[in-house]
Design a protein around this nucleic acid. Sequence first.
DNA 1: CCTTGACCTAAAGTTAGGTTTAGAAATTAC
DNA 2: GTAATTTCTAAACCTAACTTTAGGTCAAGG
Lengths: 154, 154
Amino acid sequence: MRIMAVSEGLAIGALARRTGLAVSAIRYYEAQGLIAPWRNAGGQRRYQRADIRRLSFIMIAQQFGLTLPEIKDVLSDLPGNRTPTPKDWQKISVGLRDRLDQRIATLTRLRDNLDGCIGCGCLSLPKCALYNPDDRAKCHGSGPRYLMGDSPDT
Amino acid sequence: MRIMAVSEGLAIGALARRTGLAVSAIRYYEAQGLIAPWRNAGGQRRYQRADIRRLSFIMIAQQFGLTLPEIKDVLSDLPGNRTPTPKDWQKISVGLRDRLDQRIATLTRLRDNLDGCIGCGCLSLPKCALYNPDDRAKCHGSGPRYLMGDSPDT
DNA sequence: CCTTGACCTAAAGTTAGGTTTAGAAATTAC
DNA sequence: GTAATTTCTAAACCTAACTTTAGGTCAAGG
């Protein structure tokens, strides 16, 4: 009688085909701690079906601009002792949505600042605050000012 | 009598201080064709005041996610035969704004797709179309599908 | 059994956007 | 005039996220 009904897992090539990722990329993610396959008797990697979803999540999170360490961090909220349920994925996806909202907000703010600059026609940075890499948008603090060439002695 | 009243230009260190960029970065931009100083008798780089504005524009465009080649491309619309006027800068800034709008739109679309995924709780890619890196959002075309593990034979 | 294709590891190479280093020459300050 | 700074070039190094290569091993088909 067959006991191993749950199958012996996916080989890395099959996983690559299912996800669209390169085999080398999957191995790289493993080296970075993002995925942990087991090994068969011959030492080859074997993956669970749930890993397809895991890799897909990684791909999506990358589209959203997360780095691999960040994604690793997000994924660490998944249960380690069992296959993640839709509910588990839903939970971490909400976190992803929050990050995405922040990025959109930042870009939108940046765009509005640019609009101000275009409006005045001079791209004056002290006015539009675009000069601040951290997007703190302070207008009269310390740090580099007159970035667009509008220094007082010009 | 002094003829050279327009000054002999900024040294690279002075430009670096005025823009907040590293000297090495400015030289790097030159290697990439983004800025073109002249050389003094001793072979040192000399910059115009207008270059402060040019470098600032580069910094801003980078915040918007443009690559250096893209920025070079955008800057190529500036007049080469004279110092750019506010009007010139205004023109290319509008182009920048367009690109920014597109990026915001893309991210927003991505977020809405994610919302659909969260809503259904399964992160099903065939439904949410997040799987398409080019953001073409086709739902039943060719290419990788079932990315989140929802293949028919699961 | 034997061949072919998939897989293994380790190390080197790739691209973007720079920084660092080394040794020499130019400039500035006193 | 000399010392300190700045600048010069070329080449090496850096991180992220991978890919490629080289030399072997494993697995499946006939």
